[in-house]
């Protein structure tokens, strides 16, 4: 009975909601949603903190730092902060707030954590190379019909499907 509130929204309705948020983002700001950009800002500002000169001279970091601009005071960082709050509100309303390591019973906690870290690292790396993640490149890109969006989307889901068999233990 306690799982009564644990139900998720109808996927189509949730999709509609997400679509409306995305549309609002386009209408208000002219850009879609994103997430990996905010993570990059965190990394960039971290590197900048550690060694400003190094960041300044690096081809990669120097693109995102300039003297009058703080990488953390950016649109995407605030947006991702909002995601954190929005997710929390929704989780609280649906009674889904609890510290939990989600995994398949077939694998150990340790393995799940390593998988998460490796997966995260791959995703982080790929999102930089591909100029955006599922939300920034694929979802927002598809909404504006950008070729990059469709190509990235197909590459992500195609690869995931292709590799699914090898990692089935993790999830099933």
């Amino acid at each position: 009975m306690e799982n009564k509130g644990n139900k998720y929204m109808n996927p189509y309705l949730a999709g509609l909601l997400l679509g409306v948020v995305l549309l609002a983002s386009f209408y208000l700001t002219g850009r879609g949603l994103g997430a990996s950009g905010a993570m990059k800002s965190v990394v960039v500002s971290g590197v900048d903190k550690v060694s400003h000169d190094y960041a300044e001279n690096s081809h990669f970091y120097s693109k995102y730092i300039s003297n009058d601009q703080k990488p953390l005071r950016s649109w995407l960082v605030l947006e991702v902060f909002g995601v954190l709050i929005g997710g929390f509100i929704s989780g609280a309303l649906s009674g889904r707030l609890n510290l939990k390591l989600e995994k398949s019973p077939k694998i150990t906690n340790r393995k799940r954590i390593w998988m998460a870290i490796i997966g995260g690292a791959l995703f982080g790396f790929g999102s930089q190379l591909g100029r955006g993640c599922t939300s920034g490149a694929a979802l927002s890109g598809m909404a504006v019909m950008s070729l990059a969006g469709y190509v990235t989307m197909m590459a992500i889901f195609g690869t995931a499907f292709a590799l699914a068999y090898f990692f089935r233990k993790n999830w099933i």
């Binding site: 998988m115 998460a116 870290i117 490796i118 997966g119 995260g120 690292a121 791959l122 995703f123 982080g124 790396f125 790929g126 999102s127 190379l129 591909g130 993640c133 599922t134 990235t152 590459a155 992500i156 889901f157 195609g158 690869t159 995931a160 292709a162 590799l163 699914a164 990692f167 993790n170």
Partner: peptide, 9 residues
């Protein structure tokens, strides 16, 4: 690469 990250992570 992201696809691989998705299915692993």
């Amino acid at each position: 690469i992201m696809g691989a990250g998705f299915i692993i992570g």
